[in-house]
Nucleic acid binder design. Structure first.
Lengths: 98, 98
DNA sequence: TTCAAATATTATAATAATCTAATATACCTG
DNA sequence: CAGGTATATTAGATTATTATAATATTTGAA
């Protein structure tokens, strides 16, 4: 927790995660998903972005290990992959609500 | 906390902050600064980046309201501007330490 | 006032992120 | 299997971010 080299490694790792969170629509999607699973179409409607763009956001977050997908018939439902990230998002909501 | 339009506004605002945090060196600088003030030169040494680059990082964070500067003789000392951000960084350290 | 140290700014080349439009794939139903 | 709905992928133009090098500013001290 104090070794500078170790600290830098962590900063690099965490910065990569933050980079993925640092987009209005991706953050909105995550704020939605911490409340529970949602299908792409729902996210698309709530988010108000194009199908392609939402899908690209989700793909990026999937690759980054931030969300997980599961197919349910014709739909694909997403959830937050890591409880740590749910916790982080909830912290941010608490901190930034006025 | 549930109105989608309000939620989007907040996501836009918070995403802008996260974008600024989402860089290994800037994050490292902030992790250092939550422990207390530091001069540019110290940050530069601990960070191992060029003088110009550190200064650019600090300028950006200053513009974003994330850090504050004060001159102390020949040096300029920086601190975290907003306790909310200190709290966020500390939360992230807790969450991502293993 | 001149010098040197500390910090800031500017210009710019290289790289990465973003969005749109078009196309592809997967699955269900008849 | 044909058609439709849901989602994913790709290509490409546009814009933003990053890092380096060069230069400028500020300040204390001789």
């Amino acid at each position: 927790m104090k070794d500078p080299a170790e600290m830098k490694k962590r900063c690099t790792r965490v910065a990569a995660i933050l980079k993925t969170l640092a987009h209005p629509q991706r953050l909105f999607i995550l704020c939605t998903l911490i409340r529970g699973e949602a299908a792409v179409g729902e996210l698309q409607r709530e988010c108000g972005a194009s199908q392609s763009l939402i899908s690209q956001h989700l793909t990026r977050m999937r690759r980054e290990g931030i969300v997980q997908a599961r197919r349910s018939g014709n739909f694909v439902r997403y959830r937050v992959a890591d409880p740590k990230l749910s916790e982080l998002i909830m912290n941010m909501e608490r901190i930034f609500n006025e």
